[in-house]
Write a protein that binds this DNA or RNA. Structure first.
Length: 911
RNA sequence: GCCGGGAUGGCGGAACUGGCAGACGCAGCGGACUCAAAAUCCGCCGACCUUCGGGUCAUGGGGGUUCAAGUCCCCCUCCCGGCACCA
């Protein structure tokens, strides 16, 4: 059963044993309100049919690892403060929470503790939910989403069927990333520097597997273009997504493979063998070579036999036939087609299919290519493909540059990537640094075809800028690079040897996982009908319990015959179920839509509910999801829109990424042993202090350096607030104050309150620097405490004091809800604090009566004068020149200039 | 290499649009209360000089713009994060 946090455990605090009436005693207060909220949390619920403006605030749902850590507390404290602030500003707030509860840790726990994943996960959820409640987070639990339960994952399956229907999900055999520790495939997004995103020490391997893919690339352009619209997102995240999508405009150019040279060489070999001389001694006269190139291979063999009086063996004839085959074209992708007259070779990735063909009859080439492949793999494994030294092999074949008919050698090189572009490039050493380096090393020709328009610019090779003009480029000579790119692309398209195109780094999303604890993919394999989808009416395909989990031997579900064996819905014959499960990022790609209608069993959600709540007004979470979750969920949104299910193009209007929680210079982690448990914090200082400190110690977007002693500080602050509200003496009633009659002390009080209202509200509405909001509340509390003499002497009316107490409590409510609720009740307020109106800022009351203006002489502060607020330049000038100190300082000097910034400062420039 | 973010006291951090650098908090020092401690309250708290009035220097380094620069411009160093032989 779930282990609820025992509240009585928490209250045991022996060191502080003073009478409780004048002491802040969080354990007592928090216990009381915890119990009340446990009985009734209806105020945390979003309202149905509300006339208020909606506000959807969401924190990223956690993986139920077992217990909350301070990073969670910080994340949720930010969201909770915002939710409470919006409630107090009369919005209809949706603030839900759920569990991203499929995933590998549950399987690992199953193996090491012999606990079924389901049980382990649900127990963790119960524990973490109790912690969240203990921390006082105001979630609408009636909408809780748990992704590992069938009422949720059935809709993953439903979506998969829709994706399959629309040809947005497909099955393909391909090279995939494999993490040996996870014993499963990883998406490209889950590989970080060649290593598994979960296992920093584990290198990802490449395996060839049949996988389900989602066509994320269909939305490449939209995913990229719409980033410009997401103005409420951090620039950093948008940039990371732009880089990830990696759009680049360029030109595809087809180079025809020319075999005549290789054929000639083969003839040389054959002839030299027969004549018993070295290959180089066989001179093929050029006319013969030309003649050969026009013949088919049989005619070639006959021609050679006749000319040299030899008999070509059957085996050699076969080789010649192979070499004579037209091997088609090599398509290269380039962003600089303007440099193509400088292309002096074509370079293929070692794993390019053509390379294997070339190597079939060339053992030497094959061996060399294997070395290149090995080098490339190794580099990928270290995670630094740039670190390997450039290496290449000449295939002896040639390709024809379609722009000038020139034959250039075809090489294979270890720095060419198969998975970008076409896996082949044209090499232009004069105008590309990498090609230059390669050409130098292997003695390839370097031919400059772009020159600078500007003589003052250094033209040292490689000359790469785009602002030159073409030379040695036939009909294109003299054009600027930009013009040339357009014209040359157009020519390629017209003549059918290429076209302008766009290439992306983004790949389709491989979602198959060879694991147990995930959503079963609702597909069947039938010997007769092939791949068949499960009929919608049969959903959900339930993930079976009692499965033997091991990390070897493929998908655990494959060992459950009751699961695997099914009936083909088309032919009624036997069929085999897909035993892979879905990537857990599928779960989190649309969970926030489910919150709008969490109990719908007819559809993933009601479109009307989504139309009302979406987009999410404010999403809050760690920057580590900048690519993964945030790109998948944008994709999912676009797909659902195209299905007609929703209207919004993007799921999230504003995104906030909070910093990490650091301790002793490192990210808090179990392995480093520097974790601070929220439970300990709560036990010692209370939930309010834990929350408040996580907001106070640093601006939310920066990393937070956790210092135990800092918590002590906010705890003391809460104690001062508690004492001010509960223990300050009620002043004697004088009654009948008008605004004009207010004592200076009372004016000061009003001013302090309204200045604080302004500062705290500003932080919520703008930049979210809650550390300064809390500092403002501390300053307010300090000045209220300092006014105690004024209060007890009756200089402040009971009404003003009551307003001060009430305002302080209201301003504190988003940050320290337990104490605020307690004090609110102490003040005799009947209305719920969560719906009490946020204090309104009155500029007139916040205004200063008098201000002190610093007076600088030549930019250095030398004195100050006090004038009425809002004084004109003239008044200030008079006050400054009447000041004795200033007078003596400028005596005998020539005044060059007097700068007066009303309300700010005065600067007198003297000589 | 490219992109994004940083660098301010012993520490975490303030300083909104160029206008008193160091708010607020921690730690430290001194004091009050107390038999004592805890708790609480008050004062001091960047460096150097000082005739105790004040003065000089200080926001990673160097230059510049300006009456005035932590803030704007140019150059450089270092740190964090992301991407990276992407053709």
């Amino acid at each position: 059963m779930p282990k609820e946090i025992s509240i009585t455990d928490i209250g045991a605090d022996q060191s502080r044993s003073l009478p409780q009436h004048d002491r802040y005693y969080p354990q007592r207060i928090e216990k009381k309100w915890f119990e009340r909220w446990s009985q009734d949390d209806s105020l945390y619920r979003a309202e149905a049919n509300s006339t208020k403006t909606k506000y959807y605030v969401l924190e990223m749902l956690p993986y139920p690892s077992g217990a909350l850590h301070m990073g969670h507390v910080r994340n949720y404290a930010i969201g909770d403060a915002l939710a409470r602030y919006m409630w107090m500003n009369d919005y209809n707030v949706l603030h839900p929470m759920g569990w991203d509860s499929f995933g590998l840790p549950a399987e690992n726990a199953a193996i090491s503790n012999n606990t079924p994943p389901r049980e382990w996960t649900l127990r963790n959820i119960a524990n973490m939910k109790a912690q969240m409640k203990r921390l006082g987070f105001a979630y609408d639990w009636s909408r809780e989403v748990t992704t590992c339960l069938p009422d949720y994952y059935r809709w993953n399956q439903w979506f998969f069927l829709k994706l399959f229907e629309k040809d947005m999900a497909y099955r393909k055999k391909s090279k995939v990333n494999w993490c040996p520790k996870c014993a499963t495939v990883l998406a490209n997004e889950q590989v970080v520097g060649g290593r598994c995103w979960r296992h920093e020490d584990t290198l990802v391997e490449q395996r060839e597997l049949e996988q389900w893919f989602l066509r994320t690339t269909k939305y490449s352009d939209e995913l990229l273009g719409d980033l410009d619209k997401l103005e409420g997102w951090p620039e950093k995240v948008r940039t990371m997504q732009r880089n990830w999508i990696g759009r680049s405009e360029g030109t595809l150019v087809d180079f025809k493979v020319d075999e005549s040279q290789a054929v000639l060489e083969e003839f040389q070999r054959v002839i030299s063998k027969h004549l018993g001389v070295r290959k180089t001694e066989v001179a093929l006269e050029s006319h013969l070579a030309d003649a050969l190139s026009g013949l088919d291979h049989v005619e070639r063999v006959m021609a050679i036999e006749e000319a040299f009086g030899i008999k070509v063996s059957e085996a050699d004839a076969v080789t010649i036939r192979e070499l004579s085959k037209n091997r088609g074209t090599i398509s290269v992708f380039t962003t600089r087609v303007d440099t193509i007259f400088g292309a002096t070779s074509v370079q293929l990735a070692p794993e390019h299919p053509l390379v294997a063909e070339f190597a079939v009859n060339d053992a030497a080439l094959s061996t060399k290519v294997d070395v290149l492949i090995a080098e490339q793999r190794k580099a990928k494994e270290i995670g630094d493909i740039g670190a390997i030294e450039k290496h290449g092999v000449n295939t002896g074949r040639f390709a024809v540059n379609p722009y000038n008919g020139e034959k250039v050698p075809i090489w294979v090189a270890n720095y060419i990537l198969m998975d970008y572009g076409t896996g082949a490039i044209m090499s232009v050493p004069a105008h590309d640094e990498r090609d230059y380096e390669f050409a130098k090393k292997f003695g390839l020709e370097i031919r400059q075809v772009i020159v600078s328009n500007d003589d003052s610019v250094s033209q040292e090779l490689p000359f790469t800028p785009l602002n030159g003009k073409l030379v040695n480029s036939g009909e294109f000579g003299g054009l600027s690079s930009e013009e040339a790119i357009k014209k040359m692309s157009a020519l390629a398209e017209k003549n059918g040897f290429g076209k302008a195109t766009v290439t992306y780094r983004l790949k389709d999303w491989g979602i198959s996982r060879q694991r147990y604890w995930g959503t079963p993919i609702p597909m069947l394999f039938c010997d007769k009908d092939g791949i068949v989808s499960v009929p919608e009416s049969e959903l959900p395909i339930i993930l079976p319990d009692n499965v033997d989990i091991t990390l070897t031997g493929g998908s655990p579900l494959g060992r459950v015959p009751e699961f695997v064996n099914a009936t083909c819905p088309k032919c009624g014959g036997p069929a085999r179920r897909e035993t892979d499960t879905m990537d857990t990022f599928v779960d989190s790609s649309w969970y926030f839509y489910r919150y709008t209608d969490a109990h719908n069993d007819k559809a993933p959600f009601d479109s009307k509910a989504v139309a009302y709540w979406f987009p999410i007004d404010q999403y809050i979470g760690g920057v580590e999801h900048a690519i993964l979750h945030l790109i998948y969920s944008r994709f999912w949104t676009k797909f659902m829109r195209d299905m007609g299910l929703i209207k919004n193009d993007e799921p999230i209007d504003r995104l906030f990424t909070q910093g990490m929680v650091i301790k002793d210079g490192a990210k808090m982690s179990k392995s480093l042993g520097n974790v601070v448990s929220p439970d300990e914090m709560i036990a010692q200082y209370g939930a309010d202090s834990a929350r408040l400190y996580s907001l106070f110690a640093a601006p939310p977007d920066r990393d937070l350096d956790w210092q135990e002693s800092g918590v002590e500080g906010v705890f003391r602050f809460l104690g001062r607030v508690y004492r001010f509200v509960t223990a300050t003496q009620q002043p004697p009633a004088k009654g009948g104050y008008t605004e004009a009659e207010r004592s200076p002390s009372a004016r000061n009080l009003q001013r302090a309150l309204h200045q604080t209202i302004k500062r705290v509200s500003r932080d919520f509405d703008g930049r979210w620097h809650f550390n300064t909001s809390i500092a403002a509340l501390m300053e307010l509390t300090n000045s209220l405490t300092a006014m105690s003499a004024d209060i007890s002497s009756g200089n402040i009316s009971p009404e003003d004091l009551a307003y001060a107490r009430k305002t302080l409590v209201l301003l504190l409510a988003p940050f320290a809800p337990y104490l605020a609720h307690e004090l609110w009740e102490t003040l005799g307020e009947k209305e719920s604090l969560l719906r009490a109106p946020w204090p309104k800022y009155d500029p007139a009351l916040a205004a200063e009566d008098e201000i002190e203006i610093p007076v600088q002489i030549n930019g250095k502060t030398r004195g100050r004068v006090t004038v009425a607020a809002g004084s004109s330049e003239e008044v200030i000038r008079e006050a400054v020149f009447a000041d004795e100190k200033i007078k003596s300082l400028i005596k005998g000097k020539q005044i060059v200039k007097v700068i007066i910034v009303p309300g700010k400062l005065v600067n007198i420039v003297v000589r």
